[in-house]
Design a protein around this nucleic acid. Structure first.
Length: 480
DNA sequence: GACTAGAATCCGGGCACTGC
DNA sequence: GCAGTGCCCGGATTCTAGTC
């Protein structure tokens, strides 16, 4: 904790200064420190909810503010009325004013504004806050939240959402306007990191043509796509470019540059296996996809889902296969997403991820073939398993259908189980619920000791008991 | 494939405590 | 008194398992 803060603080100072070339080494230190501290989010290899591994952060990661600003339609969503207010039902609890207070949705606007600085609105502020500095980045988080994020409640990368990610990006320098990432020195790094400074650093040799400057002048033949993208063949290039081209007033599915084509030769995602979630094309790092999502301009979720539905129905592909293979979600979630896509601006970072993945998938020319292959493999594996199970005298019906079956069918799931472990849903039995309710009647706010006791008596995790009380308080508050 | 209950998670806010 | 920190809370959201 202290060490982490020690690492953070210099970077805060560095990033708030106008020149950051001197912070290069600090930044490197910070990045490597973060690489050691933060678990990774590796969506390609892992399920959405799976255990993170080492963060593949390096100075060379395209940790960049993507060049969205020129094409991004700002989220002009007006006032987003929370459901709790929209339905006119007053909410109990401590913060009915919470929805009305200046924070709430406004903070998300702030986040979005920070992520997508609109040059048109980039007017000097009162009080001399010309620069987007530490203050700007921090003001969207309370002290408690900062503390939670940096200290006691650090989330693994896979669990970060907009704010957590924003902090991370800010730490990386991408959100601090004045942070100019110096081109990396070594060759390997040079390919990407060098090119992705938020803005062309003054006096910095244009080593790469290549800045992912937020707003290259219009009409400037931007090298961005070429230089900000990962090496040719890397799917990230297509991913990011595709997203770059997804300004809100453009058809999210509109054909993109040739680079949208997945790497030639090997179909993107390589040898897909049934049950292997998220076969995004190629080795996209977790950081990249997360950043891509965070920086992604507004996608038209309705158009996106409509297109996905069309492709699935046209090719007789099931939601389950699609969900588990592409999105890492269950059939029910896919159904929900496709039937009732939320507007982009109402989605958190996490909520946007499936749509970004849909977008990736739709742009894959081999998408149908790959899903078909998965379907075949799934069937083959199922039959094989069924055969062997029958010979063992065990039935495979029921228990092995669905994700479990998929996972067992996938060779990749022979890897350490924690990598592919699905979140186990706790289903409380009626007796457990009854006991919890009794305890609630007695004490809606149980002490840690009581929680411990309840947990051990009911053979539950303390977190489950805590969650139950939390949710039950919400439910009773709403109904009461 | 649609729908739902509810467990889990995210996040901002509030408050107590501590050290200066 | 103030800033920093840690913890807990409510509200909102996400997403799984189960059912139809």
């Amino acid at each position: 904790m202290e060490a982490q803060q020690a690492a953070v603080e210099p970077s805060l100072k560095a990033s708030s200064s106008s020149s950051t070339s001197s912070s290069h080494s600090q930044r490197d230190l910070l990045v490597s420190h973060l690489a050691a501290s933060f678990p990774a989010y590796t969506p390609l290899a892992l399920s959405l909810k799976n255990t993170p591994t080492a963060l593949p952060v390096s100075p060379s990661s395209p940790s960049t503010v993507l060049d969205f600003s020129s094409s991004v339609k700002r989220e002009d969503r007006g006032v987003s009325v929370p459901d709790s207010l929209a339905d006119g039902v007053p909410r109990l609890g401590r913060s009915p004013e919470g929805s009305a207070r200046p924070g709430g949705g406004h903070r998300r606007d702030q986040w979005w504004s920070n992520m997508n600085p609109d040059p048109r609105r980039d007017t000097p502020r009162l009080g001399g806050e010309e620069n987007h500095t530490q203050e700007d980045s921090k003001e969207a988080l309370s002290l408690g939240s900062m503390c939670d994020g940096v200290g006691s409640r650090q989330n693994p990368w896979s669990k970060m959402t907009s704010r957590g990610l924003r902090m991370q990006l800010w730490l990386n320098g991408d959100l601090s306007q004045n942070t100019h990432i110096k081109p990396a020195h070594n060759q390997a790094e040079g390919q990407t990191s060098a090119s992705c400074s938020p803005a062309p650093a003054e006096g910095t040799p244009s080593q790469t043509s290549a800045s992912c400057s937020p707003a290259p002048a219009e009409g400037t033949p931007s090298q961005t796509s070429a230089s900000c993208s990962p090496p040719p063949g890397s799917p990230l290039s297509s991913a990011e470019e595709s997203l770059n081209g997804l300004g809100g007033d453009r058809d999210p599915l509109a054909p993109q540059a040739p680079s949208l084509e997945p790497p030639s030769g090997e179909p993107s995602g390589g040898e897909s296996q049934p049950g292997t979630p998220l076969p995004l094309p190629g080795p996209i790092t977790g950081l990249s996809i997360q950043e891509t999502i965070a920086m992604s301009p507004e996608l038209d979720t309705y158009v996106l889902t409509k297109k996905v539905k069309e492709v699935l129905t046209d090719n007789n592909l099931g939601q389950r296969l699609f969900g588990e293979s592409i999105l890492g979600l269950t059939q029910g979630s896919v159904s929900d997403l496709l039937a009732r896509p939320k507007p982009w601006h109402k989605l958190s970072l996490k909520g946007r991820e499936p749509f970004v993945r849909m977008q990736f998938w739709l742009q894959d020319p081999h998408k149908v073939e790959k899903l078909m292959d998965m379907k075949r493999l799934e069937k083959k594996a199922y039959l094989k398993r069924r055969h062997s199970s029958l010979s063992d005298g065990h039935s495979v019906d029921g228990g092995l259908a669905g994700p479990d079956f998929l996972q067992s069918a996938s060779p990749q799931h022979q890897q350490p189980p924690q990598l592919y472990q699905k979140k186990i849903r706790v289903v409380l039995g009626p007796e457990e619920k009854e006991a919890l309710k009794r305890a609630y009647q007695e004490k809606p706010y149980p002490s840690p000791k009581t929680i411990e006791e309840l947990a051990s008596q009911l053979h539950l995790k303390t977190s489950t008991v805590i969650n139950w009380f939390h949710n039950y308080r919400s439910v009773t508050a709403l109904s009461g």
